[in-house]
């Protein structure tokens, strides 16, 4: 499992390129929703927090994990909801 640093690095570098091209295609009018939604998706860090909070036994790691789950949840729910709220405001000329 630990020999695959290079394959992880490959994923990372390719994703940076994907991000570069995708983000340049975002219309400047939607840059604020872009920041809100990138914020929400970067909270996928919650998967690490869940693994830390998951074991049955109480430990320092579990406490840190629980707090991280709560913080990331604020971001996930708040981030997607506020993005949706903003996007619903963009209307075309009638």
């Amino acid at each position: 499992m630990h020999g695959d640093f290079i394959s992880q690095l490959s994923i990372f570098v390719l994703a940076v390129f994907v991000g570069y091209y995708v983000v340049w295609s975002v219309t400047p009018a939607l840059h604020t929703p872009l920041m809100a939604v990138t914020n929400a998706i970067s909270s996928v860090i919650v998967v690490g927090a869940l693994i830390a909070a998951g074991p049955a036994d109480m430990s320092q790691a579990k406490i840190l994990g629980c707090v991280a789950v709560a913080l990331a949840s604020v971001n996930i729910f708040g981030g997607f909801a506020v993005t949706q709220r903003m996007l619903s405001m963009y209307k075309k000329k009638k």
Partner: peptide, 10 residues
Amino acid sequence: IITGALVGSS
């Protein structure tokens, strides 16, 4: 990793 890279470059 992919999400972090997307957000970082964004």
